[in-house]
């Protein structure tokens, strides 16, 4: 099990958002900071932090924080 704070920090660092963001409602293009360029930055950050390579279909499908948390399970990253 991984501490979810690691995932949140990756989002904060790559999207340049506040740590007290409403995580459950955070979605791609739902905020100005999470555009297509920031999305690729986010993917790179997640790959670095968790040392994985995310498949293209999952890059496209990862359209919210909640989905990201779930999709990472495919790569053996489960959150406490």
């Amino acid at each position: 099990m991984t501490d979810e704070s690691t995932l949140r920090k990756a989002f904060v660092d790559s999207l340049d958002i506040a740590p007290d963001t409403d995580w459950e409602s955070l979605s791609y293009r739902g905020i100005e900071e999470w555009d297509s360029v920031a999305h690729m930055r986010l993917i790179a950050e997640l790959e670095d932090v968790f040392d994985i390579m995310i498949e293209t279909e999952d890059v496209i499908d990862m359209n919210s924080y909640v989905v990201a948390r779930k999709l990472l399970g495919k790569y053996g990253i489960d959150f406490a």
Partner: peptide
């Protein structure tokens, strides 16, 4: 190219 570019960016 798509896969390679991601590794190169990283």
């Amino acid at each position: 190219l798509q896969a390679a570019a991601r590794l190169m960016r990283r």
